[in-house]
Design a protein around this nucleic acid. Structure first.
Lengths: 205, 205
DNA sequence: CAAAAACTGTACCGGCGGTGCAGTAAAATG
DNA sequence: CATTTTACTGCACCGCCGGTACAGTTTTTG
């Protein structure tokens, strides 16, 4: 990674932390450059404007989340051949990872984009939508494989169930932040896992 | 309601819509007063500063949500004596209400406070926390009554399960906004309802 | 009709996002 | 080693915004 890329990453790190705690509109460039110890001109060398910073940040965030999810659920499939059990293992690993974040999940950029939509151009909103749709497809694939083997015990729309993974994480983050209790996110993921168990597992005791 | 109170409400209506789509930091007083057709002096007659507007807005929002939830779950208890069935009916009514919002749920102020925490004083963050804790207590009471009659089929922390109602709504709103599909929120509530059914109902067919 | 409530008008301050552009230090390249 | 490219610095400027201060005016209400 060249020096320029390093600076870019540092600027995005600082901006991300600020955006997640103050929102995009209240995140000032002056504040970012002060913390990064760079001049305003230096900032605008890397990003044409604030929106380009947002776009780059969101892209980086989504790519990173995808990588993390790949690792977790690939690992889970390594640990068990059965799709249902692999999925349940993956959810447990996911919950553990969320519980191990030292000061809780810092927040999801996808959620802040939703709650700041008017501030972003169409490109960013599209990127955001595509990220969520990719999550849906990811989990839908797993759920279809599960439903083929284990008939669900209640009539559910698998697409909505796939969305429930993301929804649980987004909701869990908000709850964790609202109550200042990081562990809530992991709890919510485990409750979703309990639902998957009850829905697909033939005999739970 | 006096004229002053009417203006206050109008200012909060306008501010709320803006805060939910642009964040608090990007919501300008100039923009609010332009839409409300009032002067800046008029604004500051009603609210000492932006933070007082936020406090009043959040308080109003939370009180209103509580009222809506009271109505829905009181009605549900009217329709069925059994706590589990009453809760399931309540969730269905809730989902229907969310599905009937013409352009989807506009967003939750509690979530925006979480994602703008650094912009607000302790008073507001406390108010936010208390609101979420009140939701927890509300649903915990119902769940305890249910669990006394129907032994849960999986080991669950009832407190976390109570939080799952709020979490589902918060997550569902984010998903609805991210994908531009209002119905997702209702779907997610119905999936939570399905979980409650599988968890407590003795024989689901 | 008087008092209180609900504003308007005006002038001002410092900070911020953003632009433009000239200059320069450091790193990569031939 | 020289040159080009990359990665910045410095500076001047604009208009908008949150907020302050305060005097004056209209509207509502008891």
């Amino acid at each position: 990674m060249g020096k320029g890329q390093q600076t870019r990453e540092r600027l995005m790190d600082i901006a991300e932390a600020s955006v997640l705690t103050k929102g995009f509109g209240a995140t000032s460039i002056d504040e970012i450059i002060a913390e990064a110890e760079i001049t305003k001109s230096g900032f605008f060398y890397h990003f044409r404007d604030k929106n380009e910073l947002a776009r780059a940040m969101l892209l980086r965030y989504v790519e990173n989340e995808d990588k993390v999810l790949d690792e977790i659920f690939d690992r889970a499939r390594e640990l068990h051949d059965d799709p249902l059990h692999a999925f349940l293992i993956g959810l447990k690993l996911f919950a553990e990872m969320m519980a191990d974040l030292p000061s809780g999940h810092p927040g999801c950029l996808v959620a802040t984009v939703c709650y700041n939509e008017r501030l972003f151009d169409q490109k960013i909103r599209d990127l955001n939508e595509r990220a969520v749709l990719a999550w849906r497809e990811r989990f839908l694939t797993e759920l279809r494989a599960i439903a083929e083997i284990y008939p669900p015990k209640d009539k559910v729309n698998l697409e909505a169930l796939a969305d429930m993974v993301s929804s649980t994480v987004e909701g869990g983050i908000v709850m964790s932040k609202a109550l200042g209790q990081p562990k809530i996110l992991a709890e919510q993921i485990l409750l979703f896992r309990s639902y998957v168990k009850l829905l697909f597992l033939p005999a739970v005791n």
